[in-house]
């Protein structure tokens, strides 16, 4: 399991310094889905990026199963980015992108079969293997990005606003897929979103961040039904609902 302890990420120097993440501790247990919510700029992505080494740690420790992460070995964490239009190399075919995630030890002959398997897992047509990203829709691209991350057989997947760049009509399909894969493979997920309704649907527990700090953390039920922090309540109230026409009354 992934343990983030007292993580601090500070950008800039002296007066101009901004503390993006301020002493946050968070654990993602094997097989669990942890939701991380908060407004943009609250430090969600920075925390997640720090966990995989894409943001510099000012202080704090990242523990994997109680020990430090080995920078060389097979990485137990993978990251799915928000914008599927930026996270796939436009020059690489779908198959090549996914194959890049496969462990290097896997034999040459097995690779195409594994890629097909992964494409099927994310509900893409294996015939799409030679397509370029620009031939795919946003939702399909995001599936490729998920398949690439899964190819590395991670034990924890970090999903950073992965449906924010997608239409609501497609969002459902991607969320269903993630949930299904989670049940099937038991991968742990750190699911980041500013949409509480989405997080509520997918996560077992929810952590709420505001201005770089963790203000609330509990099971999904507790946070939604009995939120303790005023900011969480504010987030809950801001979720648009389909109770129609109340704005015009």
């Amino acid at each position: 399991m992934l343990e983030l302890r007292d993580i601090v990420v500070r950008y800039g120097h002296n007066q101009g310094a901004v503390t993006a993440v301020d002493e946050v501790s968070l654990t993602v247990a094997a097989g669990s889905v942890v939701g991380l919510v908060g407004e943009s700029g609250s430090g969600k992505s920075t925390l997640a990026r720090a966990a995989v080494g894409l943001a510099p740690l000012t202080s704090g420790t990242i523990l994997w199963k109680g020990a430090g992460l080995d920078p060389r070995g097979r990485p137990p964490l993978q990251y799915v980015f928000q914008d599927p239009y930026a996270s796939l190399n436009p020059r690489m075919s779908v198959g090549a992108s996914i194959a890049e995630g496969l462990p290097r030890a896997s034999g040459r002959q097995e690779r195409p079969a594994r890629v097909t398997e992964l494409l099927e897992m994310v509900r893409l047509d294996p015939g799409d293997v030679h397509k370029r990203p620009r031939q795919l829709s946003g939702g399909q691209r995001q599936r490729v990005a998920i398949a690439r991350a899964l190819a590395a057989e991670p034990e924890v997947l970090i999903a950073d606003e992965i449906t924010s760049a997608l239409d609501v009509s497609v969002q459902g399909a991607v969320l269903n897929l993630l949930k299904e894969i989670q049940t099937r493979t038991g991968v742990g997920i750190l699911f980041i979103s500013h949409n509480l309704a989405v997080v509520r649907y997918i996560a077992d527990s929810i952590a709420v961040m505001k201005s770089g700090r963790l203000v609330e953390h509990g099971t999904t039920e507790d946070v939604i039904e009995r939120s303790a922090h005023p900011y969480t309540k504010q987030l809950l109230e801001a979720v648009p609902t389909m109770t129609m026409g109340n704005g015009r009354s």
Partner: peptide, 17 residues
Amino acid sequence: SIPDMSTDRSRPLANIP
């Protein structure tokens, strides 16, 4: 296809294929 605070968590979300 829009999940809200009362969406059934045990069922797949609706979506447009």
